[in-house]
Nucleic acid binder design. Structure first.
Ligand SMILES: [Zn+2]
Length: 474
DNA sequence: CGGGTTTGACCGGCGC
DNA sequence: GCGCCGGTCAAACCCG
């Protein structure tokens, strides 16, 4: 007993220490970000500032869509983004608006009448169990902020296997899409407010669009944490005024059994304020639902593109890290499958986009990956791997990362229990990055969940080192 | 019999 | 006010 107590004390001390170090690092991180922001000046840095009032219809597009037919139509609404796109061509920070704007997607952006969104996101991020009492109505959250996460993935099954248990409660044929939309409620906990609706894409029936709403107020099975983390994180990011784009390799998604993999977050610093164009986007524009779209249907043409990472990072692939197997309930992804992802290292970073690779579920392969990444820093790699594999609070990690990226540090609530370090670097040596001021977070934000991983200070030194590198690169 | 699904009814928001 | 539409409810039904 006494021994344990002692150990406990020691851990506490360690925790404090690491926390302090974390904070100092955080400061440096913000410093960097600020510098970056001021460098690029202008619109991008201004983006996250006015989130408070306007609920955002931020399209967090996690991936590229093969087709972008209605882009213009939609981007009318996001005239600013369009501007950026036009001006900077491929170099923009923008998200892909593409098919996220297609009708069925738009119809996803419907008003939310509950207000649990933000708070629940936060509580989830901190792994704090909120009371289940079904008191979502009395949540203190700003009522305007409830975001949705829309996941598009190729999936043959009627619904994605995200690890949760869902109960269907409705079905509707939405306008503009012959495919019926199914409504599900989470049944893992009696009062869980999470809902999702699933609909096949009208244009491509193999694409399944799943829209998640709300956050689980209960602990999740391991198989479900990935998705939950993703959605929560995305929502957090969204709510903190950031835009995300997550790219997924089409080859993953379309692979046999098509496990859908997240390969990283793509962050942009766009001004996300929706430009209301009521004529075009009646429902969404009138309700301004913050909606995140994780598009994992990228076509090969767009996902195997040629952008190159700085050579020094060629060995740091945007590994498909968050890997919920939505379509198959099995999680035995062949190694070759992962290798495929690995082999794509350094080939999938669109210029001018910011990538983060924040999701990492423990996994053998990833361990290998980290060792590769940190050839020279094996201990760190190991520790990080361990941390990642044990820390389930990815939400806060990601959210913190994003809010940091956004340069505002706004979502302090997410940073409160801060548990991440971001390693980032310019996404491309080309002018684009300097122009757009984007970073590539080549490494995940290490979820240094302090209680779980006693990180020796020496590793923090490593991080310091990395951050100096960042400074250098900038 | 319990739990899930189906499906038509219902409701509320919105535009006209 | 009316109709449209997305979302939800709940009775009926199905299934193990
Ligand atoms: Zn739930």
């Amino acid at each position: 007993m006494g021994k344990m107590k002692e150990e406990n004390e020691r851990l506490k001390m360690m925790l404090e220490k690491v926390e302090k170090e974390y904070h100092s690092l955080q400061l440096r991180f913000f410093d960097i970000l600020q510098r970056e922001a001021s460098k690029k000046g202008g619109e991008d840095s201004a983006a996250p500032l006015d989130e408070e009032e306007e609920p955002k219809l931020v399209s967090l597009c996690l991936g590229r869509s093969p087709r972008e037919p209605k882009k213009d139509e939609i981007t009318d609404k996001y005239s600013k983004q369009k501007e950026n796109e036009d001006l900077q061509a491929n170099l923009t920070l923008s998200l892909d608006f593409k098919s996220a704007s297609s009708k069925e997607q738009l119809s996803d952006m419907i008003p939310m009448n509950t207000s649990e969104g933000l708070k629940e996101e936060d509580s989830t991020n901190k792994l704090i169990r909120t009371k289940d009492g079904g008191d979502e109505i009395s949540e203190l959250t700003p009522p305007t902020k409830k975001a949705r996460v829309c996941v598009k993935a190729r999936c043959d099954t009627p619904t994605m296997h995200d690890g949760c248990q869902w109960r269907k409660y409705g079905r509707k044929i939405a306008k503009g899409n012959p495919c019926p939309r199914a409504y599900y409620r989470c049944t893992l906990a009696p009062a869980c407010p999470v809902r999702k609706h699933v609909q096949r894409c009208a244009e491509d029936m193999s694409i399944l669009t799943t829209t998640y709403e709300g956050t689980h107020n209960h602990s999740l099975p391991a198989s479900a944490t990935a998705m939950a983390s993703t959605t929560s994180a995305a929502v957090s990011m969204l709510l903190s005024g950031c835009s995300i784009s997550q790219h997924t390799d089409h080859n993953f998604a379309s692979h046999a059994n098509s496990p859908t993999l997240f390969s990283g977050l793509n962050l942009g610093l766009l001004d996300q304020r929706p430009r209301a164009n009521q004529a075009l986007l009646r429902t969404p524009s009138s309700h301004f639902l913050p909606t995140i779209t994780l598009d994992m249907t990228s076509a090969p043409s767009s996902s195997t593109h040629v952008h190159c990472l700085p050579s020094s990072f060629a060995s740091t692939p945007r590994i498909p890290s968050l890997s919920p197997n939505f379509c198959s309930s099995e999680s035995n992804i062949p190694l070759s499958f992962w290798r495929k992802g690995l082999s794509k290292s350094g080939t999938t970073v669109p210029i001018g986009k910011t990538y983060i690779n924040p999701f990492n579920m423990g996994n053998q392969f990833q361990e290998h990956f980290y060792q590769q990444c940190f050839k020279n820093q094996e201990p760190l790699a190991e520790i990080l791997t361990k941390a990642i594999s044990t820390d389930t609070s990815l939400c806060s990690v990601i959210a913190a990362a994003i809010s940091s990226i956004s340069g505002q540090g706004s979502s302090s609530e997410n940073m409160g229990d801060g548990k991440f370090f971001g390693y980032f670097n310019k996404s491309s040596p080309s002018s684009s990055s300097s122009q757009g001021g984007n970073f590539t977070l080549l490494q995940p934000q290490w979820p240094f969940s302090l209680p779980k991983t006693s990180t020796p200070p020496s590793n923090v030194d490593h991080i310091n080192h990395w951050i100096s590198e960042i400074n250098y690169h900038h």
